[in-house]
C-alpha cells in the first residue's frame, strides 16, 4: 500500500458517500445519472467476485463490501425510494452501447481466458466509461449542482491517484498491469474537461454550468 493508493481509495469512498448523502438528505436524485450508478454497481459486483476466495487484507475486504453495499444502496434510493425525483428525461445514455463493446473487448483482450479473469477485465474496462452517462446528462441539462460536481471531482481524482500509485509500484515493486493502466488513463482523460470546469468555476464559488 502507498499514499497514492490510500488517498485514492479514500477519495473514492468520499465520492460514493457524498452522493449517497446528497440523495438521502435532499431526498432527491435530481441531476444524478441512475445509469452510471447501475454501471458502477456492475463494476463492483464483477470485480469483487473474489471477495470470499482471495483474502488480501481486512482493509481490502472491508472496502470491497462497503463499495458494493453503498453503490447498491444508491441504486436502490434512485430507482425505488426516490424514484419520483429521478430525471429519466435527461438520463438517456444508451448503456448497452457501453456494456456490449466492453464485454466483447474483455473477451478479446485479457490476461487469462478464465471466467473470473474475463469478468475482472470487463469490470476494469466498464469502469473507465461508466461515468459517461453522468457527464452526458450534465451536458444535456447544461449544469450540475455543486454537491454533484464535488462528487465528480472526488471520483475523477481517485483514478488519477491510482495512476500515480501504478507509477510508484512500477518503480518500487516492479508491479505493472497494462490493462488497468490503459483503462485508468482513458477513465481519467474523460474527466479532463470536467476538471477544467471544476477548477476554474466551482473552486471560485461559481456554479458548474457548461457553456451553452
Amino acid at each position: 500500500m502507498n499514499i497514492f493508493r490510500l488517498v485514492g481509495d479514500l477519495s473514492h469512498l468520499l465520492a460514493i458517500f457524498v452522493l449517497l448523502l446528497k440523495i438521502w438528505k435532499s431526498r432527491s436524485c435530481a441531476g444524478v445519472s441512475g445509469k452510471s450508478q447501475i454501471l458502477f454497481a456492475l463494476v463492483f459486483i464483477t470485480r469483487y467476485l473474489d471477495l470470499f476466495t482471495n483474502f488480501i487484507s481486512v482493509y481490502n475486504s472491508l472496502m470491497k463490501v462497503i463499495f458494493i453495499a453503498s453503490t447498491v444502496a444508491t441504486v436502490y434510493l434512485m430507482y425505488i425510494k426516490f424514484k419520483a425525483t429521478y430525471d429519466s428525461n435527461h438520463d438517456t445514455f444508451r448503456i448497452e452501447f457501453l456494456v456490449v463493446p466492453v464485454g466483447g473487448l474483455a473477451f478479446l483482450v485479457n490476461h487469462d481466458f478464465t471466467p473470473l479473469e474475463i469478468l475482472w477485465t470487463f469490470s476494469i474496462y466498464l469502469e473507465s466509461v461508466a461515468i459517461l452517462p453522468q457527464l452526458f446528462m450534465i451536458s444535456k441539462t447544461g449544469e450540475a449542482e455543486t454537491i454533484t460536481s464535488h462528487y465528480l471531482f472526488a471520483l475523477g481524482s481517485y483514478r488519477a491517484l491510482y495512476l500515480l500509485n501504478w507509477i510508484y509500484r512500477y518503480y518500487f515493486e516492479g508491479y505493472f498491469d497494462l490493462i488497468a493502466v490503459v483503462a485508468g488513463c482513458v477513465q481519467t482523460i474523460l474527466y479532463c474537461d470536467f476538471f477544467y470546469l471544476y477548477i476554474t468555476k466551482v473552486m471560485w464559488g461559481k456554479k458548474l454550468s457548461l457553456p451553452a
Binding site: 493508493r5 481509495d9 473514492h12 473474489d50 482471495n54 488480501i56 481490502n60 472496502m63 470491497k64 463499495f67 490476461h111 487469462d112 479473469e117 475482472w120 491510482y162 500509485n165 508491479y175 505493472f176 498491469d177 488497468a180
Partner: peptide, 10 residues
C-alpha cells in the same frame, strides 16, 4: 498464468 499481476487493489 504466472505473469498476471496479483489482484491486491480495489
Amino acid at each position: 498464468y504466472l505473469d498476471i499481476p496479483e489482484k491486491d487493489e480495489l
